[in-house]
Amino acid sequence: MSDGGQVRKGGGSEQEPEEHVEETPESDAKDVLDDVDELLDEIDDVLEENAEEFVRGYVQKGGQ
């Protein structure tokens, strides 16, 4: 659904500072990134279609 996201993912991980990789094992850091990406993939999947229209139409009556 979102090609843009894949591009950003690559860019983000390349910019990881060197010293950060030293204190966190590379595999762990990669797992975390994969996990976030997986989560965002899922959100792209479950997010309301026609989000713009839905959000504009979401009007509630005031309550307490």
């Binding site: 979401y58 009007v59 509630q60 009556k61 005031g62 309550g63 307490q64």
Partner: peptide, 12 residues
Amino acid sequence: NTDGKGAAYGTH
């Protein structure tokens, strides 16, 4: 608790 358009409803 809000629709983001001026309406609020409660959690008491």
